[in-house]
């Protein structure tokens, strides 16, 4: 029985090796070489492309990407937690309906939604036409980082709400009753019971928003007018336009390393939290 189950996993392992592990090694290989990519024999070892990543120009791009990703994750958390809490506290009958309403937008292609934001936010777009019509000042955020942030928060918010909601809805109601039986008011119950119990959801929410946010592209090009190129745009640029695979690969490796570090930090927080939770018990 156990053996047959293991055999069932083989296709997945093969899939992983061919489409994830091998490409990763290829990226690593290209990042440390230079020369004509079509003549693998002619490639030489080189750290040239990493030196290029360290140029102030590209460091700024990397810094901008992390800053924007950080801000949009924070906004998603502040907006998403209450939403998850509200949905989790709604009557069972309406919960799935609310959740579905929240998820409907992500059934649509993300590019389409970003173009839709473009026609909403653009200087002469729908929102501005409406504001001018009722005599209010215009909203001049596109193109700019504010519009990019808006696009990111809009696109990634569901990834914050979902995991938090899942964790919150699984909290045993008896724990909450115990808290109030012991004299805890609503605030105390929230800060000392609900919030600590929901940290795993918050951590995975942050990871699920931060990862796509830091590697995003297109949003910055369309809503930011290309004026704040992010690391994702740079990688796209290197593979699709400049055709410098070596530089594109080292940018990707740097991005991956930085993401791994952020994930390690996050899981450390998660672990500490669980240990503390254990002590409190």
């Amino acid at each position: 029985m156990k053996k047959t189950l293991r055999i069932l996993a083989y296709p997945y392992v093969v899939w992983m090796v061919i489409f994830i592990v091998v490409p990763l090694f290829l990226i690593l290989f290209y990042s440390f070489t230079k020369g004509d990519i079509h003549d693998i024999g002619s490639l030489e070892f080189s750290v040239e492309s990493y030196k290029k990543v360290a140029e102030p120009l590209y460091l700024k791009v990397i810094g901008d990407s992390f800053l924007l990703a950080f801000i949009s994750t924070a906004i998603c958390l502040v907006l998403g937690y209450p939403v998850a809490l509200i949905i989790a506290n709604t009557d069972q009958k309406y919960r799935s309906l609310l959740m579905m309403l929240f998820l409907v937008p992500i059934w649509m292609n993300f590019l389409l939604r970003t173009y839709a934001w473009m026609s909403l936010l653009s200087p002469n777009g729908l929102i501005n036409r409406f504001l001018t019509a009722i005599g209010l000042p215009r909203l001049e955020i596109m193109p700019g980082n504010a519009a990019v942030l808006l696009g990111m928060v809009y696109n990634f918010l569901p990834f914050m709400v979902l995991p938090i909601y899942t964790v919150l809805s699984k909290i045993d109601k008896q724990v909450l009753e115990a808290s109030s039986d012991l004299g805890g008011n609503k605030v105390v119950t929230f800060t000392r019971v609900i919030l600590p119990l929901s940290i795993p959801g918050v951590v995975s929410g942050i990871t699920m928003v931060f990862l796509p946010a830091v590697s995003t592209f297109v949003i910055s090009g369309l809503l930011g007018g290309g004026k704040t190129p992010l690391i994702g745009d740079m990688i796209e640029q290197q593979f699709l336009f400049a055709r410098n695979w070596h530089f594109g690969s080292s940018l990707s490796i740097i991005l991956m390393v930085m993401i791994l570090i952020s994930m390690a930090v996050m899981s450390r927080i998660d672990k500490n939290n669980q240990e503390e939770g254990g002590k409190a018990r």
Partner: peptide, 11 residues
Amino acid sequence: VPLVNGYYGDE
């Protein structure tokens, strides 16, 4: 750069 509203493609 300060005069430019944005850098776009087909848009």
